[in-house]
Design a binder for these strands. Sequence first.
RNA 1: GGCGGCGUAGCCAAGUGGCUAAGGCGAAGGUCUGCAAAACCUUUAUUCGUCGGUUCGAAUCCGACCGCCGCCUCCA
Length: 472
Amino acid sequence: MSFHLFDTYQKKKVAFEPLTKGHVRMYNCGPTVYDYAHIGNFRAYIFADTLRRWLECSGYKVTQIMNITDVDDKTIKRALEEKKGLTDITKVYVDSFFEDLNTIHILPASHYPRATTHIDEMVELVQDLLERGFAYKTEDGSIYFRVSSFAEYGKLSGKKLEDLRIGERVSNDEYDSKDDVRDFALWKSWSERDGNVFWETPLGKGRPGWHIECSAMSMKYLGDVFDIHTGGVDNIFPHHENEIAQSRCGTDGDFSRYWAHCEYLLVEGKKMSKSLGNFYTLRDLTEKGYKARAIRYVLCATHYRSQLNFTMESLEAANNSLARIDDFRESWKNYPEGIIHAEVSGVLQRGDDQFTEAMNDDLNVSRALAALFTTIRELNALANDSKTSKADVSEIERYWNRWNHALGILEPFEAETATEIDDSWIQERIEARRDARAHKNWAEADRIRDELAAKNIELKDSADGTTWKFIG
RNA sequence: GGCGGCGUAGCCAAGUGGCUAAGGCGAAGGUCUGCAAAACCUUUAUUCGUCGGUUCGAAUCCGACCGCCGCCUCCA
Protein backbone atom coordinates (compact mmCIF):
# COMPACT_ATOMS: atom_id res chain seq x y z
CA MET A 1 0.00 0.00 0.00
CA SER A 2 0.96 3.61 -0.33
CA PHE A 3 1.93 5.64 2.69
CA HIS A 4 -0.91 5.92 5.19
CA LEU A 5 -0.90 8.19 8.21
CA PHE A 6 -3.30 8.42 11.13
CA ASP A 7 -4.87 11.85 10.90
CA THR A 8 -6.00 13.20 14.25
CA TYR A 9 -8.47 15.50 12.53
CA GLN A 10 -10.27 12.71 10.67
CA LYS A 11 -9.54 10.25 13.50
CA LYS A 12 -8.54 7.49 11.11
CA LYS A 13 -5.70 6.18 9.01
CA VAL A 14 -5.76 7.85 5.62
CA ALA A 15 -3.74 7.62 2.40
CA PHE A 16 -1.22 10.44 2.36
CA GLU A 17 -1.06 12.62 -0.71
CA PRO A 18 0.85 15.90 -0.60
CA LEU A 19 -0.61 19.07 -2.03
CA THR A 20 2.27 19.36 -4.49
CA LYS A 21 3.33 16.18 -6.22
CA GLY A 22 6.65 14.95 -4.89
CA HIS A 23 7.03 17.69 -2.26
CA VAL A 24 5.91 17.51 1.36
CA ARG A 25 5.63 20.58 3.55
CA MET A 26 5.72 19.69 7.23
CA TYR A 27 5.67 21.65 10.48
CA ASN A 28 6.78 20.14 13.79
CA CYS A 29 6.04 21.67 17.16
CA GLY A 30 9.46 22.17 18.70
CA PRO A 31 10.87 23.01 22.10
CA THR A 32 10.15 25.77 24.54
CA VAL A 33 13.66 26.72 25.54
CA TYR A 34 13.35 27.23 29.30
CA ASP A 35 15.12 24.00 30.30
CA TYR A 36 16.95 21.01 28.83
CA ALA A 37 14.76 18.81 26.66
CA HIS A 38 13.73 15.54 28.32
CA ILE A 39 13.35 12.12 26.73
CA GLY A 40 9.60 12.61 26.38
CA ASN A 41 10.31 15.64 24.21
CA PHE A 42 12.73 13.58 22.22
CA ARG A 43 10.17 10.92 21.55
CA ALA A 44 8.15 13.57 19.74
CA TYR A 45 11.16 14.90 17.84
CA ILE A 46 12.28 11.42 16.85
CA PHE A 47 8.76 10.71 15.66
CA ALA A 48 8.89 13.84 13.47
CA ASP A 49 12.37 12.87 12.29
CA THR A 50 11.26 9.35 11.43
CA LEU A 51 8.31 10.72 9.50
CA ARG A 52 10.59 13.04 7.55
CA ARG A 53 13.07 10.22 6.95
CA TRP A 54 10.40 7.87 5.68
CA LEU A 55 8.93 10.50 3.37
CA GLU A 56 12.41 10.97 1.94
CA CYS A 57 12.83 7.22 1.53
CA SER A 58 9.55 7.27 -0.34
CA GLY A 59 10.96 9.75 -2.83
CA TYR A 60 9.52 13.00 -1.53
CA LYS A 61 11.37 16.23 -1.13
CA VAL A 62 10.55 17.41 2.39
CA THR A 63 10.49 20.98 3.62
CA GLN A 64 10.53 20.62 7.37
CA ILE A 65 10.02 23.49 9.77
CA MET A 66 10.45 23.21 13.52
CA ASN A 67 9.73 26.19 15.73
CA ILE A 68 11.64 27.28 18.77
CA THR A 69 9.50 28.95 21.40
CA ASP A 70 11.83 31.45 22.97
CA VAL A 71 9.26 33.68 24.62
CA ASP A 72 6.35 32.48 26.75
CA ASP A 73 5.29 32.35 30.39
CA LYS A 74 7.90 29.77 31.33
CA THR A 75 10.89 31.40 29.67
CA ILE A 76 9.96 34.75 31.16
CA LYS A 77 9.46 33.24 34.60
CA ARG A 78 12.84 31.58 34.41
CA ALA A 79 14.54 34.80 33.33
CA LEU A 80 12.96 36.75 36.20
CA GLU A 81 13.83 34.06 38.74
CA GLU A 82 17.45 34.06 37.70
CA LYS A 83 17.50 37.83 37.24
CA LYS A 84 18.79 37.47 33.72
CA GLY A 85 17.70 38.69 30.32
CA LEU A 86 15.36 36.49 28.32
CA THR A 87 17.96 35.71 25.68
CA ASP A 88 20.56 34.86 28.32
CA ILE A 89 18.25 32.06 29.41
CA THR A 90 17.04 30.90 26.03
CA LYS A 91 20.46 30.89 24.42
CA VAL A 92 21.68 28.20 26.81
CA TYR A 93 18.77 25.92 26.03
CA VAL A 94 18.70 26.64 22.31
CA ASP A 95 22.34 25.65 22.11
CA SER A 96 21.81 22.52 24.19
CA PHE A 97 18.79 21.62 22.07
CA PHE A 98 20.86 21.61 18.89
CA GLU A 99 23.61 19.65 20.61
CA ASP A 100 21.06 17.08 21.72
CA LEU A 101 19.55 16.78 18.23
CA ASN A 102 23.01 16.03 16.96
CA THR A 103 23.69 13.57 19.77
CA ILE A 104 20.64 11.49 18.97
CA HIS A 105 21.06 11.76 15.18
CA ILE A 106 17.98 13.75 14.36
CA LEU A 107 18.43 15.20 10.87
CA PRO A 108 18.38 19.00 10.71
CA ALA A 109 15.09 20.57 9.66
CA SER A 110 15.01 23.07 6.81
CA HIS A 111 14.51 25.98 9.24
CA TYR A 112 14.14 26.50 12.97
CA PRO A 113 12.23 29.78 13.17
CA ARG A 114 12.08 31.49 16.55
CA ALA A 115 9.13 33.29 18.01
CA THR A 116 11.12 36.38 18.96
CA THR A 117 12.24 37.00 15.39
CA HIS A 118 8.75 36.66 13.92
CA ILE A 119 6.84 39.22 15.95
CA ASP A 120 5.95 41.19 12.80
CA GLU A 121 4.33 38.15 11.17
CA MET A 122 2.32 37.46 14.31
CA VAL A 123 1.20 41.07 14.55
CA GLU A 124 0.00 40.94 10.96
CA LEU A 125 -1.99 37.78 11.57
CA VAL A 126 -3.58 39.28 14.67
CA GLN A 127 -4.47 42.41 12.71
CA ASP A 128 -6.10 40.27 10.05
CA LEU A 129 -8.10 38.48 12.71
CA LEU A 130 -9.22 41.80 14.18
CA GLU A 131 -10.22 43.10 10.76
CA ARG A 132 -12.15 39.98 9.95
CA GLY A 133 -13.98 40.16 13.23
CA PHE A 134 -12.64 37.01 14.88
CA ALA A 135 -10.71 38.82 17.58
CA TYR A 136 -11.30 41.63 20.01
CA LYS A 137 -9.26 43.86 22.24
CA THR A 138 -10.02 44.14 25.94
CA GLU A 139 -9.65 47.19 28.12
CA ASP A 140 -6.23 46.16 29.35
CA GLY A 141 -4.98 46.01 25.75
CA SER A 142 -4.82 42.23 25.33
CA ILE A 143 -6.32 40.68 22.25
CA TYR A 144 -8.35 37.48 22.30
CA PHE A 145 -9.70 35.10 19.72
CA ARG A 146 -13.46 34.76 19.91
CA VAL A 147 -13.90 30.99 20.03
CA SER A 148 -17.63 31.15 19.38
CA SER A 149 -16.99 32.77 16.00
CA PHE A 150 -15.42 29.62 14.58
CA ALA A 151 -17.98 26.88 14.04
CA GLU A 152 -15.43 24.11 13.75
CA TYR A 153 -13.75 24.88 17.06
CA GLY A 154 -13.25 21.61 18.95
CA LYS A 155 -13.24 19.33 15.92
CA LEU A 156 -9.58 18.35 16.18
CA SER A 157 -9.71 17.48 19.86
CA GLY A 158 -13.25 16.11 19.78
CA LYS A 159 -14.40 18.53 22.41
CA LYS A 160 -17.69 20.28 22.71
CA LEU A 161 -17.45 23.81 23.97
CA GLU A 162 -20.09 23.24 26.62
CA ASP A 163 -18.19 20.27 28.05
CA LEU A 164 -15.06 22.19 28.85
CA ARG A 165 -14.56 22.71 32.55
CA ILE A 166 -13.30 26.19 32.36
CA GLY A 167 -11.25 27.63 35.12
CA GLU A 168 -10.74 24.37 36.96
CA ARG A 169 -7.02 24.33 36.40
CA VAL A 170 -6.24 27.99 35.97
CA SER A 171 -7.41 30.75 38.20
CA ASN A 172 -10.14 32.78 36.63
CA ASP A 173 -8.87 36.18 37.66
CA GLU A 174 -6.46 36.21 34.75
CA TYR A 175 -9.32 36.00 32.36
CA ASP A 176 -11.78 38.39 33.94
CA SER A 177 -11.58 40.78 31.07
CA LYS A 178 -12.44 38.23 28.41
CA ASP A 179 -15.88 38.12 26.81
CA ASP A 180 -15.91 34.36 27.20
CA VAL A 181 -13.63 32.36 29.46
CA ARG A 182 -12.89 29.97 26.61
CA ASP A 183 -11.40 32.66 24.39
CA PHE A 184 -7.65 32.48 24.13
CA ALA A 185 -4.98 35.15 23.96
CA LEU A 186 -3.51 36.23 20.66
CA TRP A 187 -1.64 39.14 22.15
CA LYS A 188 -0.91 39.81 25.81
CA SER A 189 -0.52 43.40 26.88
CA TRP A 190 2.51 44.07 29.03
CA SER A 191 2.20 43.54 32.77
CA GLU A 192 4.78 43.82 35.52
CA ARG A 193 5.15 40.08 35.56
CA ASP A 194 6.76 40.30 32.13
CA GLY A 195 9.68 42.42 33.37
CA ASN A 196 11.49 43.89 30.42
CA VAL A 197 10.06 41.40 27.95
CA PHE A 198 7.79 43.27 25.55
CA TRP A 199 7.51 44.57 22.02
CA GLU A 200 6.15 47.95 20.96
CA THR A 201 3.87 47.12 18.04
CA PRO A 202 0.78 48.47 16.30
CA LEU A 203 -1.12 46.16 18.64
CA GLY A 204 0.34 47.92 21.64
CA LYS A 205 3.07 47.13 24.12
CA GLY A 206 3.11 43.45 24.93
CA ARG A 207 4.00 39.99 23.73
CA PRO A 208 2.39 37.29 21.62
CA GLY A 209 0.12 34.59 22.93
CA TRP A 210 1.49 31.08 22.81
CA HIS A 211 -0.43 29.70 19.86
CA ILE A 212 0.01 32.53 17.40
CA GLU A 213 3.69 31.88 16.72
CA CYS A 214 3.07 28.46 15.23
CA SER A 215 0.36 29.79 12.93
CA ALA A 216 2.41 32.76 11.79
CA MET A 217 5.65 30.86 11.29
CA SER A 218 4.23 27.74 9.69
CA MET A 219 2.30 29.79 7.15
CA LYS A 220 5.25 32.08 6.50
CA TYR A 221 7.52 29.19 5.54
CA LEU A 222 5.01 26.69 4.18
CA GLY A 223 2.04 28.71 2.92
CA ASP A 224 -1.60 29.05 4.01
CA VAL A 225 -2.08 25.40 3.22
CA PHE A 226 0.56 22.78 3.89
CA ASP A 227 0.68 19.05 4.39
CA ILE A 228 1.51 17.82 7.87
CA HIS A 229 1.58 19.28 11.35
CA THR A 230 2.98 17.19 14.19
CA GLY A 231 3.28 17.39 17.95
CA GLY A 232 2.64 15.46 21.13
CA VAL A 233 -0.90 14.41 22.03
CA ASP A 234 -0.89 17.03 24.74
CA ASN A 235 -0.70 19.68 22.02
CA ILE A 236 -4.01 18.64 20.50
CA PHE A 237 -5.87 20.75 22.99
CA PRO A 238 -5.65 23.63 23.29
CA HIS A 239 -2.58 24.42 21.23
CA HIS A 240 -3.43 22.88 17.87
CA GLU A 241 -7.12 23.49 18.22
CA ASN A 242 -6.35 27.17 18.64
CA GLU A 243 -3.87 27.19 15.80
CA ILE A 244 -6.50 25.82 13.45
CA ALA A 245 -9.02 28.42 14.56
CA GLN A 246 -6.77 31.45 14.21
CA SER A 247 -5.09 30.24 11.02
CA ARG A 248 -8.24 29.41 9.10
CA CYS A 249 -10.00 32.51 10.27
CA GLY A 250 -7.05 34.81 9.65
CA THR A 251 -6.34 33.60 6.10
CA ASP A 252 -8.21 32.06 3.21
CA GLY A 253 -6.25 28.82 3.54
CA ASP A 254 -7.17 25.55 5.22
CA PHE A 255 -3.92 25.38 7.22
CA SER A 256 -2.53 21.88 7.78
CA ARG A 257 -4.07 19.03 5.78
CA TYR A 258 -2.95 16.20 8.08
CA TRP A 259 -2.37 16.19 11.84
CA ALA A 260 -0.13 13.58 13.43
CA HIS A 261 0.38 13.26 17.18
CA CYS A 262 2.78 11.21 19.19
CA GLU A 263 1.66 9.53 22.44
CA TYR A 264 3.12 10.06 25.86
CA LEU A 265 6.11 8.34 27.34
CA LEU A 266 6.09 6.72 30.79
CA VAL A 267 9.19 5.93 32.80
CA GLU A 268 9.12 2.65 34.72
CA GLY A 269 5.36 2.60 34.21
CA LYS A 270 4.78 6.02 35.74
CA LYS A 271 4.33 9.43 34.33
CA MET A 272 7.68 11.16 34.24
CA SER A 273 7.90 13.75 36.96
CA LYS A 274 10.61 15.43 38.93
CA SER A 275 9.01 14.49 42.25
CA LEU A 276 9.04 10.77 41.41
CA GLY A 277 12.70 10.99 40.51
CA ASN A 278 12.08 9.44 37.11
CA PHE A 279 12.55 12.60 35.08
CA TYR A 280 15.36 12.33 32.56
CA THR A 281 16.89 14.71 30.09
CA LEU A 282 18.92 13.23 27.28
CA ARG A 283 22.10 14.44 28.92
CA ASP A 284 21.14 12.88 32.27
CA LEU A 285 21.20 9.51 30.56
CA THR A 286 24.27 9.99 28.40
CA GLU A 287 26.19 11.24 31.43
CA LYS A 288 25.29 8.01 33.19
CA GLY A 289 26.89 6.14 30.31
CA TYR A 290 23.79 5.15 28.38
CA LYS A 291 24.28 5.47 24.66
CA ALA A 292 22.28 7.97 22.65
CA ARG A 293 21.85 5.33 19.99
CA ALA A 294 20.23 2.92 22.45
CA ILE A 295 17.99 5.73 23.67
CA ARG A 296 16.96 6.45 20.10
CA TYR A 297 16.30 2.75 19.58
CA VAL A 298 13.99 2.57 22.59
CA LEU A 299 12.20 5.79 21.65
CA CYS A 300 11.48 4.71 18.08
CA ALA A 301 10.83 0.99 18.58
CA THR A 302 7.37 1.45 20.06
CA HIS A 303 4.67 2.64 17.67
CA TYR A 304 4.31 6.40 18.03
CA ARG A 305 0.62 6.26 18.86
CA SER A 306 1.10 3.88 21.80
CA GLN A 307 2.27 4.96 25.19
CA LEU A 308 5.88 3.95 25.55
CA ASN A 309 7.18 2.53 28.79
CA PHE A 310 10.78 3.68 29.05
CA THR A 311 12.88 1.59 31.46
CA MET A 312 16.57 1.16 32.15
CA GLU A 313 16.06 -2.51 31.35
CA SER A 314 14.75 -1.61 27.90
CA LEU A 315 17.89 0.48 27.34
CA GLU A 316 20.06 -2.54 28.14
CA ALA A 317 17.99 -4.70 25.81
CA ALA A 318 18.34 -2.07 23.08
CA ASN A 319 22.09 -2.13 23.54
CA ASN A 320 22.13 -5.87 22.97
CA SER A 321 19.89 -5.58 19.94
CA LEU A 322 22.24 -2.96 18.51
CA ALA A 323 25.21 -5.24 19.12
CA ARG A 324 23.45 -7.86 17.03
CA ILE A 325 22.98 -5.30 14.26
CA ASP A 326 26.62 -4.23 14.46
CA ASP A 327 27.94 -7.78 14.46
CA PHE A 328 25.95 -8.46 11.34
CA ARG A 329 27.29 -5.32 9.70
CA GLU A 330 30.86 -6.32 10.62
CA SER A 331 30.37 -9.83 9.30
CA TRP A 332 30.21 -8.62 5.68
CA LYS A 333 33.94 -8.01 5.81
CA ASN A 334 34.50 -11.71 6.30
CA TYR A 335 32.40 -12.82 3.37
CA PRO A 336 34.61 -14.79 0.96
CA GLU A 337 35.33 -13.80 -2.62
CA GLY A 338 32.78 -15.26 -4.98
CA ILE A 339 29.75 -14.86 -7.16
CA ILE A 340 26.47 -13.06 -6.60
CA HIS A 341 23.89 -15.25 -4.87
CA ALA A 342 20.28 -15.08 -6.00
CA GLU A 343 19.16 -16.25 -2.57
CA VAL A 344 20.68 -13.14 -1.00
CA SER A 345 18.71 -10.96 -3.39
CA GLY A 346 15.57 -12.86 -2.54
CA VAL A 347 16.01 -12.39 1.19
CA LEU A 348 16.75 -8.68 0.76
CA GLN A 349 13.81 -8.09 -1.54
CA ARG A 350 11.42 -9.90 0.78
CA GLY A 351 12.80 -8.04 3.77
CA ASP A 352 12.45 -4.69 2.04
CA ASP A 353 8.89 -5.44 0.97
CA GLN A 354 7.96 -6.17 4.56
CA PHE A 355 9.89 -3.20 5.88
CA THR A 356 8.23 -0.88 3.38
CA GLU A 357 4.78 -2.29 4.02
CA ALA A 358 5.25 -1.73 7.76
CA MET A 359 6.52 1.83 7.44
CA ASN A 360 3.80 2.71 4.94
CA ASP A 361 1.26 1.51 7.48
CA ASP A 362 1.38 4.61 9.67
CA LEU A 363 5.10 4.28 10.45
CA ASN A 364 4.94 0.89 12.11
CA VAL A 365 8.57 0.86 13.21
CA SER A 366 8.09 -2.22 15.42
CA ARG A 367 7.07 -4.25 12.41
CA ALA A 368 9.81 -2.72 10.27
CA LEU A 369 12.35 -3.78 12.89
CA ALA A 370 10.91 -7.29 12.88
CA ALA A 371 11.48 -7.38 9.10
CA LEU A 372 15.01 -6.12 9.62
CA PHE A 373 15.88 -8.75 12.23
CA THR A 374 14.34 -11.52 10.15
CA THR A 375 16.48 -10.41 7.22
CA ILE A 376 19.58 -10.39 9.41
CA ARG A 377 18.89 -13.89 10.67
CA GLU A 378 18.28 -15.24 7.18
CA LEU A 379 21.42 -13.64 5.76
CA ASN A 380 23.49 -14.93 8.69
CA ALA A 381 22.12 -18.38 8.00
CA LEU A 382 23.13 -18.07 4.34
CA ALA A 383 26.58 -16.90 5.42
CA ASN A 384 26.95 -19.95 7.67
CA ASP A 385 26.07 -22.05 4.65
CA SER A 386 28.71 -20.30 2.50
CA LYS A 387 25.97 -18.82 0.36
CA THR A 388 27.18 -15.22 0.63
CA SER A 389 30.20 -13.54 -0.89
CA LYS A 390 31.85 -10.15 -1.24
CA ALA A 391 29.97 -9.79 -4.51
CA ASP A 392 26.71 -9.68 -2.55
CA VAL A 393 27.80 -6.88 -0.24
CA SER A 394 26.98 -3.96 -2.52
CA GLU A 395 23.36 -5.05 -2.78
CA ILE A 396 23.12 -5.63 0.96
CA GLU A 397 24.57 -2.18 1.50
CA ARG A 398 22.05 -0.61 -0.82
CA TYR A 399 19.14 -1.89 1.26
CA TRP A 400 20.99 -1.31 4.51
CA ASN A 401 21.49 2.35 3.66
CA ARG A 402 17.81 2.73 2.84
CA TRP A 403 16.75 1.15 6.13
CA ASN A 404 19.26 3.21 8.00
CA HIS A 405 18.01 6.40 6.40
CA ALA A 406 14.53 5.47 7.60
CA LEU A 407 15.44 4.59 11.19
CA GLY A 408 18.77 6.27 11.88
CA ILE A 409 20.02 3.55 14.22
CA LEU A 410 21.71 0.97 11.99
CA GLU A 411 25.14 2.58 12.01
CA PRO A 412 27.17 3.37 15.14
CA PHE A 413 27.02 6.98 16.32
CA GLU A 414 30.54 8.31 15.81
CA ALA A 415 31.11 9.68 19.27
CA GLU A 416 30.45 6.30 20.81
CA THR A 417 33.11 4.51 18.83
CA ALA A 418 35.87 6.84 19.97
CA THR A 419 38.37 5.13 22.18
CA GLU A 420 40.65 6.39 24.88
CA ILE A 421 42.58 3.17 24.94
CA ASP A 422 45.66 2.89 22.82
CA ASP A 423 45.08 0.64 19.84
CA SER A 424 48.69 -0.47 19.76
CA TRP A 425 48.46 -1.73 23.32
CA ILE A 426 45.45 -3.84 22.36
CA GLN A 427 47.33 -5.18 19.35
CA GLU A 428 50.30 -6.01 21.54
CA ARG A 429 48.06 -7.94 23.95
CA ILE A 430 46.39 -9.80 21.10
CA GLU A 431 49.78 -10.82 19.73
CA ALA A 432 50.92 -11.98 23.14
CA ARG A 433 47.80 -14.07 23.39
CA ARG A 434 48.33 -15.43 19.89
CA ASP A 435 51.79 -16.65 20.93
CA ALA A 436 50.39 -18.24 24.07
CA ARG A 437 47.71 -19.97 22.04
CA ALA A 438 50.29 -21.20 19.53
CA HIS A 439 52.03 -22.91 22.44
CA LYS A 440 48.70 -24.17 23.74
CA ASN A 441 49.27 -22.14 26.88
CA TRP A 442 45.52 -21.77 27.41
CA ALA A 443 45.81 -20.37 30.93
CA GLU A 444 47.90 -17.42 29.74
CA ALA A 445 45.68 -16.93 26.68
CA ASP A 446 42.58 -16.77 28.85
CA ARG A 447 44.31 -14.46 31.33
CA ILE A 448 44.99 -11.95 28.54
CA ARG A 449 41.46 -12.27 27.28
CA ASP A 450 40.16 -11.51 30.79
CA GLU A 451 42.55 -8.59 31.05
CA LEU A 452 41.06 -7.07 27.92
CA ALA A 453 37.54 -7.98 28.94
CA ALA A 454 38.05 -5.94 32.09
CA LYS A 455 38.44 -2.95 29.80
CA ASN A 456 35.26 -3.86 27.90
CA ILE A 457 37.20 -5.25 24.99
CA GLU A 458 35.82 -8.45 23.61
CA LEU A 459 37.94 -10.75 21.49
CA LYS A 460 36.73 -12.97 18.71
CA ASP A 461 38.89 -15.74 17.30
CA SER A 462 38.43 -16.91 13.78
CA ALA A 463 40.41 -18.72 11.12
CA ASP A 464 41.73 -15.36 9.91
CA GLY A 465 43.00 -14.29 13.32
CA THR A 466 41.63 -12.42 16.28
CA THR A 467 39.48 -9.30 16.10
CA TRP A 468 38.24 -7.14 18.95
CA LYS A 469 35.49 -4.69 19.72
CA PHE A 470 34.19 -2.62 22.57
CA ILE A 471 31.15 -3.97 24.33
CA GLY A 472 28.63 -2.44 26.72
C1' G B 1 -18.45 15.64 35.74
C1' G B 2 -17.21 15.32 30.06
C1' C B 3 -14.04 12.98 26.36
C1' G B 4 -10.25 9.38 25.02
C1' G B 5 -6.42 5.47 25.23
C1' C B 6 -4.25 1.06 27.13
C1' G B 7 -3.93 -4.10 29.67
C1' U B 8 -0.52 -9.86 24.61
C1' A B 9 5.35 -14.77 27.33
C1' G B 10 10.26 -13.32 32.70
C1' C B 11 10.90 -8.06 30.24
C1' C B 12 10.02 -4.82 25.81
C1' A B 13 6.60 -5.06 21.78
C1' A B 14 3.64 -6.07 16.79
C1' G B 15 -0.96 -8.12 15.55
C1' U B 16 -7.52 -5.52 15.94
C1' G B 17 -12.71 -11.20 12.98
C1' G B 18 -10.42 -16.96 10.18
C1' C B 19 -3.72 -20.73 7.99
C1' U B 20 0.95 -22.86 13.29
C1' A B 21 -0.29 -15.11 18.01
C1' A B 22 5.61 -11.07 14.38
C1' G B 23 10.24 -9.38 16.18
C1' G B 24 13.93 -8.02 20.03
C1' C B 25 16.02 -8.88 24.96
C1' G B 26 16.50 -12.66 28.66
C1' A B 27 16.63 -18.03 29.77
C1' A B 28 17.53 -23.41 28.49
C1' G B 29 19.55 -27.24 25.10
C1' G B 30 22.41 -28.26 20.59
C1' U B 31 26.16 -27.28 16.21
C1' C B 32 30.92 -24.75 15.77
C1' U B 33 35.33 -23.62 19.12
C1' G B 34 41.37 -25.45 23.06
C1' C B 35 37.73 -22.79 26.00
C1' A B 36 35.06 -18.59 24.67
C1' A B 37 32.63 -14.86 21.59
C1' A B 38 29.64 -14.30 17.36
C1' A B 39 26.50 -16.96 14.18
C1' C B 40 22.99 -20.80 13.15
C1' C B 41 19.24 -24.64 14.85
C1' U B 42 15.65 -26.05 18.75
C1' U B 43 12.71 -24.81 23.12
C1' U B 44 10.41 -20.73 26.01
C1' A B 45 1.98 -17.44 25.29
C1' U B 46 -3.12 -24.27 23.61
C1' U B 47 -3.46 -18.39 24.80
C1' C B 48 -4.06 -12.41 24.66
C1' G B 49 -6.63 -8.21 32.55
C1' U B 50 -11.46 -10.79 34.56
C1' C B 51 -16.42 -12.43 33.66
C1' G B 52 -20.35 -12.69 30.30
C1' G B 53 -22.40 -12.01 25.16
C1' U B 54 -22.53 -11.79 19.50
C1' U B 55 -20.55 -15.18 15.63
C1' C B 56 -19.65 -21.26 12.06
C1' G B 57 -15.22 -18.72 14.08
C1' A B 58 -12.78 -13.32 18.72
C1' A B 59 -6.59 -11.31 21.44
C1' U B 60 -9.46 -8.73 17.69
C1' C B 61 -16.73 -6.88 17.85
C1' C B 62 -20.42 -5.77 22.19
C1' G B 63 -21.43 -5.31 27.69
C1' A B 64 -19.95 -5.28 32.76
C1' C B 65 -16.06 -5.26 36.16
C1' C B 66 -10.80 -4.66 37.77
C1' G B 67 -6.12 -2.07 36.93
C1' C B 68 -3.06 1.74 34.56
C1' C B 69 -2.62 6.32 31.67
C1' G B 70 -4.04 10.90 29.21
C1' C B 71 -6.85 15.53 27.79
C1' C B 72 -10.60 19.22 29.54
C1' U B 73 -6.38 27.12 28.65
C1' C B 74 0.05 27.64 27.62
C1' C B 75 2.64 20.39 29.12
C1' A B 76 6.05 16.71 23.45
